[in-house]
């Protein structure tokens, strides 16, 4: 006796069903709402001397495309050099025009060590902290960018 044609088509349909289920199981891709970033590095000096441990924060001139947390920032190393961070380590910044604020801040908050750290700290004038009064601007282009050195006048 021949097998019932119904039986054959049942298995066939199951196989077809399986092929459709698999992509669903594989899951949905996550929405990537991050702006493309381009590596951006630079240097901070104060009266010609490199400033270590300075927080450099880039504020976009046109804020419409930026979410609040998209504020490229970096801390300078012993040579006064920094590499901007927006979403992940040293990923740079979205291409845009920026105003820049620079201030010395403790890198880590560790109780008594912080007190010592603050006592040995050189003081940068407060006006450089606020991008509105610092007079510092920068442009990140759609390629790896070296920002011009910010030489803060000591007087």
């Amino acid at each position: 006796m021949k097998r019932s044609p119904l039986m054959g088509s049942c298995c066939h349909w199951l196989a077809v069903l399986a092929t459709f289920v698999v992509p669903f199981v594989a899951g949905c891709g996550s929405d990537n709402l991050q702006q493309p970033t381009y590596p951006a590095t630079g240097k901070v000096t104060f009266g010609g001397k490199p400033v270590a441990g300075a927080m450099v924060v880039f504020h976009p001139v046109d804020k419409s495309k930026f979410k609040w947390e998209e504020l490229p920032q970096a801390v300078t190393n012993e040579q006064g050099e920094y590499s901007l961070h927006t979403y992940s380590s040293n990923d740079g910044a979205p291409a845009a025009d920026y105003t820049v604020g620079i201030a010395l801040v403790p890198v880590a908050d560790e109780g008594e060590d912080q007190v010592k750290l603050e006592k040995n700290r050189i003081i940068l004038p407060v006006r450089f902290a606020d991008p509105k009064t610092s007079g510092l601007t920068a442009k990140v282009e759609t390629k790896a960018t070296v920002i011009q050195t910010f030489d803060l006048p000591s007087k």
Binding site: M55, V56, V57, H59, W68, L71, Q73, V100, G101, I102, A103, L104, V105, D109, E118, I123, L124, V126, A129, D130, P131, K132, S134
Partner: peptide, 24 residues
């Protein structure tokens, strides 16, 4: 919450009145 988060250059939250940056 670290008050510096509210100050320039970060301005990540509303500033605390009377807080002067760099003044211990």
């Amino acid at each position: 919450m670290n008050g510096r988060l509210g100050l320039a250059p970060l301005n990540r939250m509303p500033p605390i009145p009377g807080y002067v940056f760099g003044d211990p």
